[in-house]
Protein backbone atom coordinates (compact mmCIF):
# COMPACT_ATOMS: atom_id res chain seq x y z
CA UNK A 1 0.00 0.00 0.00
CA UNK A 2 1.08 3.53 -0.68
CA UNK A 3 2.89 5.14 2.26
CA UNK A 4 0.68 8.22 2.24
CA UNK A 5 -2.32 5.99 3.00
CA UNK A 6 -0.54 3.68 5.43
CA UNK A 7 0.61 6.39 7.86
CA UNK A 8 -2.83 7.92 8.66
CA UNK A 9 -4.37 4.44 8.90
CA UNK A 10 -1.74 3.26 11.38
CA UNK A 11 -2.02 6.52 13.28
CA UNK A 12 -5.77 6.22 13.76
CA UNK A 13 -5.38 2.51 14.62
CA UNK A 14 -3.05 3.38 17.48
CA UNK A 15 -5.22 6.34 18.53
CA UNK A 16 -8.40 4.26 18.71
CA UNK A 17 -6.63 1.44 20.60
CA UNK A 18 -5.41 4.01 23.13
CA UNK A 19 -8.91 5.46 23.40
CA UNK A 20 -10.34 1.97 24.02
CA UNK A 21 -7.76 1.32 26.74
CA UNK A 22 -8.58 4.60 28.48
CA UNK A 23 -12.35 4.27 28.13
CA UNK A 24 -12.59 0.66 29.36
CA UNK A 25 -9.60 0.12 31.65
CA UNK A 26 -8.18 3.44 32.83
CA UNK A 27 -11.33 5.47 33.51
CA UNK A 28 -12.93 4.68 36.90
CA UNK A 29 -16.45 3.26 37.01
CA UNK A 30 -19.02 5.94 37.70
CA UNK A 31 -20.57 5.51 41.15
CA UNK A 32 -24.28 5.89 40.35
CA UNK A 33 -24.50 5.08 36.64
CA UNK A 34 -22.03 2.17 36.60
CA UNK A 35 -20.34 0.86 33.48
CA UNK A 36 -23.01 2.26 31.14
CA UNK A 37 -21.45 5.69 31.70
CA UNK A 38 -18.46 4.57 29.59
CA UNK A 39 -20.57 5.04 26.49
CA UNK A 40 -20.05 8.75 27.19
CA UNK A 41 -16.45 8.42 25.91
CA UNK A 42 -17.75 7.38 22.48
CA UNK A 43 -20.94 9.43 22.43
CA UNK A 44 -19.38 12.86 23.03
CA UNK A 45 -16.44 12.41 20.60
CA UNK A 46 -18.88 11.17 17.92
CA UNK A 47 -21.00 14.28 18.43
CA UNK A 48 -17.89 16.45 18.19
CA UNK A 49 -16.74 14.71 15.00
CA UNK A 50 -20.16 15.07 13.36
CA UNK A 51 -20.25 18.81 14.09
CA UNK A 52 -16.70 19.14 12.79
CA UNK A 53 -17.66 17.20 9.66
CA UNK A 54 -20.69 19.41 8.97
CA UNK A 55 -18.56 22.48 9.55
CA UNK A 56 -16.15 21.17 6.90
CA UNK A 57 -19.15 20.63 4.56
CA UNK A 58 -20.16 24.28 5.03
CA UNK A 59 -16.63 25.66 4.48
CA UNK A 60 -16.00 23.42 1.46
CA UNK A 61 -19.41 24.42 0.03
CA UNK A 62 -18.62 28.12 0.34
CA UNK A 63 -15.20 27.51 -1.26
CA UNK A 64 -16.86 25.54 -4.07
CA UNK A 65 -19.36 28.32 -4.85
CA UNK A 66 -16.57 30.88 -4.89
CA UNK A 67 -13.99 28.96 -6.94
CA UNK A 68 -16.04 26.34 -8.82
CA UNK A 69 -13.29 23.77 -8.22
CA UNK A 70 -14.56 20.21 -8.25
CA UNK A 71 -12.19 19.13 -5.47
CA UNK A 72 -14.09 21.31 -2.95
CA UNK A 73 -17.30 19.59 -3.94
CA UNK A 74 -15.72 16.17 -3.41
CA UNK A 75 -14.44 17.28 0.00
CA UNK A 76 -17.92 18.48 1.02
CA UNK A 77 -19.52 15.21 -0.13
CA UNK A 78 -16.89 13.12 1.70
CA UNK A 79 -17.26 15.08 4.91
CA UNK A 80 -21.06 14.89 4.80
CA UNK A 81 -20.99 11.10 4.51
CA UNK A 82 -18.68 10.76 7.50
CA UNK A 83 -20.74 13.29 9.46
CA UNK A 84 -23.93 11.30 8.86
CA UNK A 85 -22.15 8.15 10.04
CA UNK A 86 -21.07 9.79 13.31
CA UNK A 87 -24.35 11.56 14.01
CA UNK A 88 -26.03 8.17 13.55
CA UNK A 89 -23.64 6.76 16.18
CA UNK A 90 -24.61 9.68 18.46
CA UNK A 91 -28.33 8.95 18.02
CA UNK A 92 -27.78 5.24 18.70
CA UNK A 93 -25.47 5.54 21.72
CA UNK A 94 -27.55 8.32 23.32
CA UNK A 95 -30.71 6.26 23.94
CA UNK A 96 -28.60 3.24 25.06
CA UNK A 97 -27.19 5.40 27.82
CA UNK A 98 -30.40 7.33 28.51
CA UNK A 99 -32.65 4.32 29.12
CA UNK A 100 -30.88 3.06 32.26
CA UNK A 101 -29.89 6.54 33.50
CA UNK A 102 -32.87 8.80 32.68
CA UNK A 103 -35.27 5.87 32.49
CA UNK A 104 -36.35 6.99 29.03
CA UNK A 105 -34.88 6.49 25.59
CA UNK A 106 -35.64 9.95 24.39
CA UNK A 107 -36.51 13.41 25.61
CA UNK A 108 -37.14 16.49 23.48
CA UNK A 109 -34.25 18.37 24.96
CA UNK A 110 -32.42 20.99 22.87
CA UNK A 111 -29.29 18.94 22.27
CA UNK A 112 -31.13 15.72 21.42
CA UNK A 113 -33.64 17.39 19.16
CA UNK A 114 -30.95 19.39 17.36
CA UNK A 115 -28.92 16.21 16.71
CA UNK A 116 -32.00 14.49 15.34
CA UNK A 117 -32.88 17.39 13.02
CA UNK A 118 -29.23 17.61 11.97
CA UNK A 119 -29.38 13.93 11.03
CA UNK A 120 -32.49 14.57 8.92
CA UNK A 121 -30.89 17.59 7.20
CA UNK A 122 -27.74 15.73 6.19
CA UNK A 123 -29.62 12.61 5.10
CA UNK A 124 -31.52 15.02 2.83
CA UNK A 125 -28.18 16.46 1.71
CA UNK A 126 -26.91 13.01 0.67
CA UNK A 127 -30.22 12.23 -1.06
CA UNK A 128 -30.07 15.50 -2.97
CA UNK A 129 -26.59 14.62 -4.19
CA UNK A 130 -27.73 11.30 -5.60
CA UNK A 131 -30.97 12.60 -7.14
CA UNK A 132 -29.66 15.23 -9.56
CA UNK A 133 -29.46 14.86 -13.33
CA UNK A 134 -26.66 17.24 -14.12
CA UNK A 135 -23.52 16.73 -12.04
CA UNK A 136 -22.24 20.29 -12.25
CA UNK A 137 -25.54 21.88 -11.23
CA UNK A 138 -26.04 19.18 -8.65
CA UNK A 139 -22.80 20.18 -7.01
CA UNK A 140 -24.03 23.78 -6.77
CA UNK A 141 -27.39 22.65 -5.34
CA UNK A 142 -25.60 20.55 -2.75
CA UNK A 143 -23.31 23.44 -1.85
CA UNK A 144 -26.27 25.80 -1.33
CA UNK A 145 -28.05 23.22 0.80
CA UNK A 146 -24.85 22.45 2.72
CA UNK A 147 -24.45 26.10 3.68
CA UNK A 148 -28.08 26.58 4.74
CA UNK A 149 -28.04 23.26 6.59
CA UNK A 150 -25.10 24.31 8.73
CA UNK A 151 -26.42 27.83 9.38
CA UNK A 152 -29.60 26.14 10.51
CA UNK A 153 -27.83 24.31 13.36
CA UNK A 154 -27.64 27.23 15.84
CA UNK A 155 -31.12 28.40 14.79
CA UNK A 156 -32.63 24.99 15.46
CA UNK A 157 -30.77 24.76 18.76
CA UNK A 158 -31.96 28.17 19.95
CA UNK A 159 -35.54 27.60 18.88
CA UNK A 160 -35.73 24.27 20.69
CA UNK A 161 -34.17 25.79 23.80
CA UNK A 162 -36.72 28.60 23.88
CA UNK A 163 -39.44 26.08 23.25
CA UNK A 164 -38.21 23.98 26.16
CA UNK A 165 -37.54 26.78 28.62
CA UNK A 166 -41.10 28.06 28.18
CA UNK A 167 -42.37 24.59 29.11
CA UNK A 168 -41.70 22.41 32.13
CA UNK A 169 -38.51 20.61 31.17
CA UNK A 170 -38.01 16.95 32.03
CA UNK A 171 -35.77 16.53 35.06
CA UNK A 172 -32.29 15.44 34.16
CA UNK A 173 -29.25 15.86 36.34
CA UNK A 174 -25.98 17.49 35.38
CA UNK A 175 -24.76 15.19 32.67
CA UNK A 176 -21.22 16.42 32.49
CA UNK A 177 -18.96 19.29 33.44
CA UNK A 178 -18.91 20.07 37.16
CA UNK A 179 -18.80 16.54 38.53
CA UNK A 180 -16.29 15.02 36.12
CA UNK A 181 -13.36 13.30 37.87
CA UNK A 182 -9.88 14.18 36.54
CA UNK A 183 -9.35 10.63 35.18
CA UNK A 184 -12.67 10.83 33.36
CA UNK A 185 -11.85 14.22 31.91
CA UNK A 186 -8.51 12.92 30.68
CA UNK A 187 -10.16 9.87 29.12
CA UNK A 188 -12.67 12.13 27.41
CA UNK A 189 -9.90 14.33 26.03
CA UNK A 190 -7.98 11.32 24.72
CA UNK A 191 -11.13 9.95 23.09
CA UNK A 192 -11.87 13.34 21.51
CA UNK A 193 -8.33 13.41 20.11
CA UNK A 194 -8.52 9.82 18.86
CA UNK A 195 -11.87 10.39 17.15
CA UNK A 196 -10.54 13.54 15.50
CA UNK A 197 -7.59 11.58 14.12
CA UNK A 198 -10.00 8.90 12.91
CA UNK A 199 -12.14 11.56 11.24
CA UNK A 200 -9.16 13.11 9.48
CA UNK A 201 -8.09 9.69 8.20
CA UNK A 202 -11.57 8.74 6.98
CA UNK A 203 -11.98 12.12 5.32
CA UNK A 204 -8.61 11.82 3.62
CA UNK A 205 -9.33 8.32 2.31
CA UNK A 206 -12.86 9.19 1.20
CA UNK A 207 -11.64 12.34 -0.51
CA UNK A 208 -8.93 10.42 -2.38
CA UNK A 209 -11.50 7.81 -3.45
CA UNK A 210 -13.77 10.59 -4.67
CA UNK A 211 -10.97 12.15 -6.69
CA UNK A 212 -10.10 8.78 -8.28
CA UNK A 213 -13.78 8.14 -9.09
CA UNK A 214 -14.06 11.56 -10.76
CA UNK A 215 -10.89 10.98 -12.75
CA UNK A 216 -12.16 7.55 -13.80
CA UNK A 217 -15.46 9.09 -14.91
CA UNK A 218 -13.59 11.71 -16.94
CA UNK A 219 -11.42 9.11 -18.69
CA UNK A 220 -14.46 6.96 -19.43
CA UNK A 221 -16.24 9.90 -21.07
CA UNK A 222 -13.10 10.62 -23.07
CA UNK A 223 -13.07 7.08 -24.48
CA UNK A 224 -16.79 7.19 -25.31
CA UNK A 225 -16.61 10.52 -27.09
Amino acid sequence: MDKKYLIPILLSYVAILTALYFAFLYAPTERTMGDVQRIFYFHVPSAWVSFLAFFVVCIASIAFLRTGKESWDILAASSAEIGVLFITIVLLTGPMWAKPVWNTFWTWDARLTTSFILWLIYIAYLMLRSYVHDKERGARFAAVFGIIGFLDVPIVYMSIRWWRTLHPAPVMGGKQGSGLAPEMLMTLMICLGAFTVLFATLLFLRYKTGMVATEFERLKNKIHS
Binding site: I117, L120, A124, D152, S159, I160
Partner: peptide, 14 residues
Protein backbone atom coordinates in the same frame (compact mmCIF):
# COMPACT_ATOMS: atom_id res chain seq x y z
CA UNK B 1 -40.41 18.20 1.55
CA UNK B 2 -37.28 16.23 2.44
CA UNK B 3 -35.17 19.33 1.93
CA UNK B 4 -37.66 21.88 3.18
CA UNK B 5 -39.21 20.48 6.36
CA UNK B 6 -36.10 19.80 8.48
CA UNK B 7 -34.57 23.18 7.64
CA UNK B 8 -37.74 25.16 8.35
CA UNK B 9 -38.49 23.47 11.68
CA UNK B 10 -37.54 26.66 13.62
CA UNK B 11 -40.02 28.71 11.56
CA UNK B 12 -42.78 26.12 11.90
CA UNK B 13 -42.12 25.88 15.64
CA UNK B 14 -42.14 29.65 16.21
Amino acid sequence: PILLFPVTIPIILA
